[in-house]
Simulated scan of single mutants.
Amino acid sequence: MTQSIAPETTVKLSLIVPVFNEAETVSLFINSISTVFDKEPLVDLEILFINDGSTDDTLLRLLELQSIDNRIQIIELSRNFGKEAALTAGLQICSGQIIVPIDVDLQDPPQLIPAMITKWREGYEVVLGRRIDRDSDSWAKRSSANLFYRIHNKMTSSKIPENVGDFRLMDKCVVEAIKELPESRRFMKGLFAWVGFKTTYINYSRPQRSAGTSKFNGWKLWNFALEGITSFSTDPLKIWTYLGLTFSAISFLFAIFIALKVIIHGADVPGYASIMVAVTFLGGLQLIGIGILGEYLGRTYIESKRRPVFIIRQIYRGKR
């Protein structure tokens, strides 16, 4: 899509909503969605919940809501595959002309979607929701996120927009392009950025969660960051090559210094402490380098198996 869309044209919108143990929040989410879209007669709405292996009453609550709201479609995965896989499942099955991935905790405000649709009607194929206020996040989370964006964007050619999550509007042509990407280890923010297309932003302040607790912890976020960097850049391997060359040069110069010292002043007994420092330091560098190689090798090994990103247990379709 490259031309603007007439404002009086009815459009089908698919909301992709991954959920994992969110029984407390799904009702609040549907109420908020209804408040927004009951006033939008030109939007044919599909709400696609992806139940990512929830162990609480999330599925039962969704089925109750579906019985009174036929806009709700439920994809139940066979186990917890993770948010990236759940998003992929939603993108594979959605039928909308425009698609919006959105969190169920209402930290991505549904009230912003009509403004996104207006931008899409103007001819944009991607409309990003950009957070300008992250006071709802802890200082550690804000700082680590900013550091990740800086490091990632320094190392990769496809830049991830800062303070932009999965919350965005995408034209169907963008989703079709993403569906053509075959990798099984999927860092969706990177894939969204890699495909490109005509893009604009809408700024918003990120509110607190409506209910429940976040399923991400520090360890998961760390692994998520590693996935993002290793999926789109080989710079860590290059950096280790340069480090190896640098320390080899330093060692060679130090060897020359020792040889000249022995020639001029005679032999001396080397210090035990300096030897131990050198051995442990260089040994540590080698182990880190092996670890980085292992990260890439492990991802190559997983990709080579060509396992599916997700497995669907059942699809519950609303009667429309």
Results as ranks from 00 to 15, higher is better:
Gln3Ala: 07
Ser4Arg: 00
Ala6Arg: 09
Thr9Lys: 09
Lys12Asn: 13
Leu13Asn: 01
Leu15Ala: 02
Pro18Asp: 04
Val19Lys: 05
Val19Gln: 00
Ala23His: 12
Phe37Lys: 00
Glu46Ile: 05
Ile47Gly: 02
Phe49Lys: 02
Gly53Lys: 01
Asp57Cys: 07
Leu62Pro: 08
Glu64Ser: 15
Gln66Asn: 09
Asn70Ile: 08
Asn70Arg: 13
Arg71His: 08
Ile72Ala: 00
Gly82Arg: 01
Ala89Asp: 07
Ala89Ile: 03
Leu91Asn: 06
Cys94Ile: 01
Ser95Leu: 06
Pro101Gln: 06
Asp103Ala: 11
Val104Phe: 06
Asp108Trp: 01
Pro110Gly: 14
Gln111Lys: 08
Ile113Val: 07
Arg121Trp: 01
Arg121Asp: 03
Glu122Val: 03
Val126His: 00
Arg131Glu: 10
Ile151Val: 14
Met155Ala: 08
Ser157Phe: 05
Gly165Thr: 03
Leu169Ala: 01
Cys173Val: 02
Cys173Ser: 08
Val175Gln: 02
Val175Thr: 05
Ile178Asp: 07
Pro182Cys: 12
Glu183Thr: 05
Lys189Val: 07
Lys189Phe: 05
Phe192Ile: 04
Val195Arg: 10
Phe197Ser: 10
Thr199His: 06
Tyr201Lys: 00
Asn203Gly: 08
Ser214His: 13
Phe216Ile: 12
Ala225Pro: 03
Ser231Pro: 03
Phe232Glu: 05
Ala249Tyr: 13
Ile256Tyr: 11
Lys261Val: 05
Ile264Glu: 01
Asp268Ala: 14
Asp268Tyr: 15
Ala273Thr: 11
Ser274Gln: 15
Ser274Asp: 15
Ile275Lys: 15
Val277Trp: 15
Val279Arg: 13
Leu285Asp: 08
Tyr296Met: 11
Thr300Asn: 14
Pro308Met: 02
Pro308Tyr: 05
Val309Ala: 13
Ile312Met: 11
Arg313Gly: 00
Tyr316Asn: 09
Arg320His: 11
